[in-house]
């Protein structure tokens, strides 16, 4: 698999580190709502189809990427730097 890092260009899968589901929202840091923390830490939609997920280009520029990838075909629909994607509200 090749991932087109927005910074480095297409690179081999081996350079990337999977960081998991990107759809969860972290509760307010001071929240004491255990259920909310539980849902954030432990549950995921785990879809069969397009999946919003984070990867880190650990063996390259070190940036985290927000990727939409199909879990049935492994086809990558989009890649963005997580920082800019989150900042611009493009997050799923």
């Amino acid at each position: 698999m090749l991932i087109s890092c927005p910074h480095c260009g297409p690179r081999d899968l081996a350079e990337f580190s999977y960081q998991g589901d990107a759809t969860r929202t972290r509760p307010e840091p001071a929240s004491t709502d255990t259920k909310a923390w539980h849902d954030y830490v432990y549950t995921r939609p785990n879809p069969a189809g397009p999946h919003h997920e984070y990867w880190q280009h650990a063996g390259g520029c070190r940036a985290h990427l927000l990727i939409v990838r199909d879990t049935l075909s492994h086809e990558i629909h989009s890649v963005a730097l997580a920082r800019s994607a989150n900042a611009s509200g493009a997050r799923a």
């Binding site: 580190s17 960081q19 990107a22 972290r26 984070y54 880190q56 650990a58 070190r62 940036a63 985290h64 997580a82 920082r83 989150n86 900042a87």
Partner: peptide, 13 residues
């Protein structure tokens, strides 16, 4: 290192 980078990039950009 990865843990810290994750929080800086994703949780507290």
């Amino acid at each position: 290192m990865q843990h810290l980078e994750y929080f800086l990039d994703i949780v507290w950009p």
